[in-house]
Design a binder for these strands. Structure first.
Lengths: 135, 135
DNA sequence: CAGGATCCTAACCGATACTG
DNA sequence: CAGTATCGGTTAGGATCCTG
């Protein structure tokens, strides 16, 4: 029986979920160029909280995509790096990044068009979920 | 100034967020082979609720990835299809699917290994989120 | 420096009921 | 059939404080 992400309990869906995680993609991309320290990751990924960074790294480590190396020094130093498995994902993930930057303008234009049409369809102004813009 | 997903307010991060959505990938994949009715989508994507399906479709429509066609008939019939922009995403998304199915075993093995080491680090067994299978 | 532990709110999401 | 509206539990995730 081959994995089928359309089936509820198939593990492949969990894998998709991890990749589809809000921060995983950005972390993996940051590690593309080589090892990074915890603090470097935190600095490079604007807006990520310490909690989410740690949580994301643990998840990636658990899934075998990232290694965590603790150097016994003072102050402590922890390096993160992609595993072979993690690097195998790199093409896909950077493809995602470039798709996003390439088609960003189109997507934004589509949004403007869609939102402009909304008033006609919901007369009383059924408020959209109102993405409350981070912060 | 080019879009940089590492910057907090860059739109490209919103695009990544949409792709990284729990259901968007599955919906796009389902539409890969051609138009689908609302009910067909619901049936094919196991475990999605009607609310999430609608919400996901609206999001994809808003971003210009999917079209929604209402046929004036009784009973009503609504077809969804990928736009050109949506199809441009297809390679990436199906790449994601095949990566997931290909490396599923490795990921699961890594998890087992990681979890086996955990007891030594968190004695009380910090339970995983435990995705609750609905019903 | 690299996190662990807590607290707390907002967003997610499923279940249910209702409508054109 | 294809939704919308609403309620309520669950989770995500930021802020803050603390430690080796």
């Amino acid at each position: 029986m081959r994995p089928d992400p359309f089936q509820r309990n198939c593990g492949s869906r969990q894998v998709i979920d991890r990749i589809g995680d809000r921060w995983s993609v950005l972390v993996v991309l940051t590690l593309a160029d080589g090892d990074r320290r915890y603090g470097e990751l935190a600095e490079h990924i604007d807006g990520i909280s310490q909690k989410m960074l740690t949580q994301t790294l643990r998840g990636l480590e658990r899934d075998g995509l990232v290694t965590r190396t603790v150097h016994a020094s003072v102050p402590p130093r922890v390096d993160y790096a992609l595993t072979g498995l993690g690097r195998s994902l790199l093409d896909l993930v950077s493809g995602l990044e470039s798709w996003a930057t390439t088609h960003l303008a189109e997507v934004q234009a589509a949004r403007v068009r869609y939102d402009a049409d909304l008033p006609r369809r919901s007369p009383t102004g059924t408020a959209r979920p109102t993405r409350p813009s981070r912060r």
